[in-house]
Design a protein around this nucleic acid. Structure first.
Length: 560
RNA sequence: GAGGGUGUAGCUCAGUCGGUAGAGCAUCGGACUUUUAAUCCGUGGGUCCGGGGUUCGAGUCCCCGCACCCUCACCA
């Protein structure tokens, strides 16, 4: 009975024998550890005369590598005692140092760590016995006085202990933390607790999202929730996840974009509207792609793409100010400078600069595409240009840079420039070669929209086009959509950039993974039987599986 | 989907030429009232990812499979 989790079960029994509930209960009025640490200045030395003296600056001394001998310092001041505020903290035990009749614990809550000292004489025999049953990872609460140990470490000198929750599994290595990338994703709770900086990234994500909402709400925007189950996967170019509604006997897809329903709301007179929500794309997984990710789309009546460009900049600047770390963000070995205004260049300018090819010379485009190993055969010149741009230009855009004025024929949802219908009023924001934002002056002409839905672009498969016919959407447009600017921002990628995370899984709490091979309570044999999807669309029940055939037919149904 | 890499104790990792399975942390027992990755003494702990093969003998070599990571492709 010496295996780590058997030892923990034994301690669980001993707790119960002591009359202690190993699963704890309500614990009111605890103070967050960083707020307790902020009270360090209240710890003072009181002389017999009653005079209170501020303590030396231990933290500065330690940083200067000139530690202070606190005992000697106190002797110099004369007879007296240390005083400090009464505090109550709660958290997880992340380190323990037993030393006979005294014990030090490093306690962690989601704001920080603080040391606890438990002395047998100070807490009494019963609480000291209780402290012997503490394991790394247990949740405890502590009442005590804030003070300093002989080495100057800020410490809660325990007076009363409270057991709040047992950890039955052993924790990761106390210094190295949890390194295995698979376990970090599967057991994110361990990653959050034991790997430094992980909690900070996810709390920063929350702050960024809150800041975005604040920015939009301040501008009079209204947040809404559109449907995630769609009959047509519109608004973007991506393969959807397919599903099925039993009662309606109807194939459905998970949304790949928010666009078309938000525009219906513009028709309805919601003049400034946004949605911050999950979209699903049945594509590959990579350090920059997760099958479900979070998108912001915002639509503003009577605006255009230039207004949305300013809004995009505002959103990012506000988020950076919320994080309070300045406009220079460390990314790999270089620094991204988000100081506004961001650079602005037209699509054709960048294209000519970087490729050296005239963007208006169709035959030069074909020749250049061949040089890059692309297949230009039978494709519209704009499509060839776009493929060259993605291949050769996007990766060069360190940014932040707004790329403006896209070729019209690759923008089926965008209004054309009044003086040049070959150019669409669209911009994308690139940072470190990643597309972060995409915005248009929205196309509100239902007749042109229907024509663009109908017109298959030369050389583009229907699956690759944004132009999936949606009669219901056309009907909405026919009722009059005000002229408007629209904006989409990939929230996960924005969070990556603002937190210096190089993999999208570092900013998504639970990224998609295959089922685990084994579980603590199960066997590998059972797990491997569970994890055997027969094709890419995993059916969740029988009726779902039987719908697969009709789904396939639907997907191939030509839209024209 | 293609190529490369990784998989060994609860965790972090070594493992040479194919020859008895290793360390640190954690656990368990002991000492210690100012430690802080505490220290010191002692102890237990292995489906070497799974399956096959070669061999007297496989963690190590070969084949098949699985998971994860990286690069590329699709995509944001």
């Amino acid at each position: 009975m010496t295996e780590p989790h058997e030892a923990r079960l034994l301690k669980l029994e001993k707790l119960q024998q002591m009359g202690v509930d190993p699963w704890g209960s309500r614990f009111d009025d605890r103070q967050l550890i960083d707020s307790v640490r902020a009270r360090a200045a209240e710890v003072k030395y009181r002389l017999a005369s009653g005079q209170e003296i501020a303590l030396p600056d231990f933290d500065a001394a330690r940083q200067a590598e000139q530690p202070i001998d606190y005992r000697a310092w106190k002797a110099e001041q004369g007879a007296g005692e240390e005083i400090g505020p009464q505090v109550r903290v709660a958290g997880r035990i992340v380190l323990q140092r037993g030393q006979g009749k005294i014990k030090f614990i490093t306690l962690r809550d989601w704001t920080g760590d603080i040391q606890i000292m438990i002395g047998k004489a100070q807490v009494g025999d019963r609480d000291f016995e209780l402290s012997k049953l503490f394991d790394l990872g247990d949740w405890i609460g502590v009442d005590g006085r804030l003070g300093r140990t002989n080495t100057g470490e800020l410490t809660v000198f325990a007076e009363k202990l409270h057991f709040l929750g047992k950890m039955l599994e052993p924790p990761p290595e106390k210094y190295a933390g949890l390194q295995d990338p698979e376990l970090r994703q599967r057991q994110r709770y361990l990653d959050l607790t034991y790997n430094r900086g992980v909690m900070d990234v996810f709390l920063a994500r929350t702050q960024i999202v809150q800041s975005i909402r604040d920015t939009l709400n301040r501008r009079g925007y209204c947040e809404v929730e559109g449907p995630t189950l769609h009959t047509i996967a519109g608004g973007a170019a991506a393969r959807p996840f397919k599903t099925y509604h039993n009662a309606l006997d109807m194939p459905l897809v998970l949304r790949i974009a928010l666009e078309l329903h938000l525009k219906r709301l513009l028709v309805g007179g919601m003049e400034r509207v946004y949605e911050l929500g999950r979209v699903y794309r049945n594509e590959g997984i990579s350090p920059r792609h997760n099958p479900e990710f979070t998108m912001l789309e915002a639509y503003e009546a009577f605006a255009d793409y230039r207004v949305m460009m300013e809004l995009t900049e505002r959103i990012i600047v506000d988020a950076l100010e919320r994080l309070g770390k300045g406009f220079q963000v460390q990314w790999n070995d270089n620094v991204i400078d988000f100081t506004p205004p961001f650079q602005r260049r037209t699509y054709d300018e960048l294209f000519a600069d970087i490729t050296g090819v005239d963007p208006d010379d169709a035959s030069a485009l074909v020749a250049h595409a061949r040089r890059l190993g692309l297949d230009p055969e039978g494709k519209h010149p704009d499509v060839i240009k776009s493929e060259i741009f993605e291949e050769q230009v996007e990766g060069q855009l360190q940014g932040p840079i707004f790329v403006i004025d896209y070729p019209a024929s690759i923008c089926p949802l965008t209004k054309r420039k009044a003086d040049n219908p070959r150019v669409a009023e669209r911009f994308e924001l690139f940072v470190q070669g990643m597309e972060i934002a995409n915005a248009y002056t929205e196309l509100n002409d239902p007749i042109l929209q229907e024509e663009l839905f109908r017109t298959q672009l030369e050389g583009l498969a229907e699956d690759d086009s944004m132009a999936r016919m949606d009669h219901d959407f056309i009907l909405a447009l026919r009722h009059g959509m005000p002229p408007a600017g629209g904006l989409g921002i990939g929230i996960d990628r924005l969070v990556m950039l603002l937190t210096g995370s190089r993999n999208i899984r570092e900013v998504i709490l639970f990224p998609l993974l295959r089922p685990a091979q084994s579980t603590p309570g199960g066997t590998k044999r059972e797990a491997s039987v569970l994890g055997h999807p027969e094709d890419e669309a995993t059916a969740t029940d029988q009726s779902n599986a039987s719908a697969e055939t009709s789904l396939g037919e639907h997907a191939n149904d030509p839209t024209g």
